[in-house]
Computed example of a mutant assay.
Amino acid sequence: MKLAVISDIHGNVAALDAVLADAATRQVEQIVNLGDICSGGLFPRETAERLMPLGFPTIRGNHERQLSDQTLEQMGLSDRHAATTMLPEQLAWLAALPATRRVSDDVLLVHGTPDSDLTYLLETVTERGIRPATADEVEQRLGSVDASVILCGHTHLQRAMALDDGRLIVNPGSVGLPAYEDDRPYPHLVESGSPHARYAVLSNEGSGWAVSLLSVAYDWEQAARDAEANGRADWSRALRSGRV
C-alpha cells in the first residue's frame, strides 16, 4: 500500500494543485483527505470543484462541522467566506462527510483525535504555548483505537510518532496554510517556518510503514496577493513566510 495524505487545504487551490502534481510523480495508490478543506481566505468554491470529481476518501474537519452547525452570524471570517461563495451542492458534500473513516483495517483517518475535531493529537498547548505531545499524552488521546496507523491533521504541523505498542501516528501538515494563531485552550501560535505546501506519503511493502513528510513549492506570492484581495492580510503574511 502506498498512500498520499493531504489535510488542511483551507481553500488554497494553487497549493492543492501543486501537491496533487507532486503526488502523481510518486506512484501512490490512493490519496486521502483529512478535512478543513475549503474554509479560509482564498478559493473555497474552486477547491470543491477540484476535489469533488476525484472521489478521494475524505473526512470532515472542524471547519466542515462549523459550516453545518453555525449561522452566518456565528461564523468566523473563513467559514463565512466559504458559506457565502460555495454552491449548495458543494456545501452538502461537506456536510455529509464522516468525522472519521477507515481506509483499511490498519489505517484510520481522524482530523484532530478520534473523539474530537478540535483537540490536538501530536501537540499540547499550555499557558506557555504549543509543544510536541509526549507519548503518554498521545496514548491517552487515542484510547483503545486499534488501528496500526492513525492519520491526523488540524495543527498544520508535520510530525510522526511511533508508540511503544506499535501504533504509528502521522500528521502530514497543511497543504494550504503554513501558520496561524488560535486561543484554544490558551493563546498560541502555530508556525511551520516556510511557505511550502505540505503533505505526506506512507508506504508499506510488508516490512513496516515508511513515512515521507514532503514540502512542495508553488506560487505562494500570488496566493498571498489573492488573500489580500479578499481582505485577509493575516493570511497573506502566513502564506508568504510560514509565520504569523
Rank of each mutant, 00 (worst) to 15 (best):
L142R: 04
L77C: 06
L94Y: 02
M161K: 02
A99L: 08
G143A: 00
L239F: 05
L20M: 14
H154R: 14
G166M: 12
W235D: 11
P195E: 05
Q70V: 03
A217V: 06
L213M: 14
T134A: 03
W93F: 15
G173E: 01
R167F: 10
R141I: 11
D234C: 10
Q30P: 02
A24M: 09
V125K: 00
L67W: 07
V28Y: 08
A48C: 15
T126L: 03
N12M: 04
P114N: 11
V216C: 12
S39R: 05
T25C: 03
A83I: 02
V110D: 05
G76L: 04
R65Q: 13
T113N: 07
G55R: 14
Y218E: 05
E139H: 04
A162M: 10
D17S: 13
A217E: 15
A135P: 00
A15G: 12
S215I: 00
N33M: 13
T155S: 15
D164V: 10
D117H: 09
G76H: 10
D146W: 07
A82G: 00
P172T: 13
E139F: 00
L168N: 02
D8M: 04
K2W: 02
D17I: 12
P114W: 10
R243E: 12
G11D: 07
L118W: 07
H156L: 02
Q74I: 06
E89T: 15
A160S: 15
S78G: 03
N33H: 15
L109P: 04
M161Q: 11
A95L: 12
L108I: 11
G76P: 04
M1Y: 07
L157P: 03
S144W: 08
D79W: 02
Q30E: 14
D183S: 14
L54F: 11
L87W: 14
R184C: 06
A95V: 14
S116E: 14
M75D: 08
S68C: 05
R243Y: 01
I130Q: 01
V244N: 14
T119I: 14
L77A: 14
I6L: 08
N62T: 09
G153C: 11
A83L: 06
L67C: 06
L16I: 12
E181N: 09
A15Y: 04
L239H: 07
S148W: 03
H154D: 08
L42K: 06
A21N: 13
L87A: 15
S68P: 00
S241D: 09
L121Q: 03
I59T: 05
L54R: 15
A24C: 12
E89C: 11
G231S: 13
M52A: 09
M86D: 01
S7C: 04
A160E: 14
L97I: 14
D106M: 07
